[in-house]
């Protein structure tokens, strides 16, 4: 009888405790510098995959990487999906519409590429959401080209954030010396890991299902 009381009490206390946040927040950074704008349709496909995967209570944001990316002006769209699935579906439709319009309006690429600033912007957003799983998806060739006077050579703070580099295209110089490409990836990995984050590269879009650790089973 005593054991039953203990078990009941434990269950009640467990039920009253603050649950661990189970939602996910994703920040997609889209490189709009130079010729990388030609790759935007791929970014659109990734966003569609994310919208189909994320669920009620999850958060998503899309921002462009340009000459100075640490700015709210670069955020194309952001949303935290409603608790009700029907409302969440409507929000997803609106989000997709925003992204489609952005892709249509981008014509020329930016002169410089501020990836660090964009990651900082993403980190700020993700930490504010208080989500259980936080992802920064960097859709870029990872070749940072900072504007004169911009300071970005300081350590990043990416505790608990998964950084995934997507579609890291090879530059012309990489073909001449592939070590540049490897060094570029290594450098970013080092910065992310030293900042407490988790680093991954996904170039094959056929494996998008492994992009983020979400439960993709359809409840319907």
């Amino acid at each position: 009888m005593k054991a039953i009381y203990v078990i009941t009490l434990t269950l009640m206390l467990g039920a009253c405790g603050q649950p661990q946040p189970g939602n996910t927040a994703v920040f997609l950074l889209v490189d709009t510098s130079g010729t990388y704008t030609e790759e935007l349709n791929k970014a659109q496909a990734i966003l569609n995959y994310l919208l189909a995967t994320l669920d009620s209570g999850d958060s998503i944001a899309v921002a462009r990487i340009d000459s100075g990316s640490f700015s709210e002006k670069d955020v194309i769209a952001k949303a935290t999906f409603d608790q009700r699935p029907s409302m969440a579906n409507n929000q997803k439709r609106v989000f997709k519409h925003h992204m489609d319009r952005f892709v249509e309006t981008v014509n020329t690429g930016s002169a410089h590429t501020d990836i660090t600033g964009a990651i900082l912007q993403a980190t700020e957003f993700l930490n504010e959401t208080g989500a259980g799983q936080k992802y920064v998806l960097v859709f870029s060739d990872l070749a940072e080209d900072l504007q004169q006077g911009h300071i970005r050579n300081f350590p990043l703070e990416l505790g608990g954030i998964h950084v995934v580099a997507l579609n890291v295209t090879k530059l012309r110089s990489d073909n001449i010396d592939p070590r540049d490409y490897i060094n570029r990836l290594g450098l970013w990995q080092k910065r992310v890991v030293e900042g407490g984050g988790d680093w991954r590269v996904v170039n094959d879009f056929d494996r998008l299902d492994t992009l983020i650790g979400l439960n993709t089973t359809d409840p319907l």
Partner: peptide, 16 residues
């Protein structure tokens, strides 16, 4: 269970 999320929220948890 699934339509219940429309009434009580899809991301609300009680005791896990």
């Amino acid at each position: 269970a699934m339509p219940m999320a429309e009434m009580v929220g899809g991301n609300s948890y009680t005791g896990g």
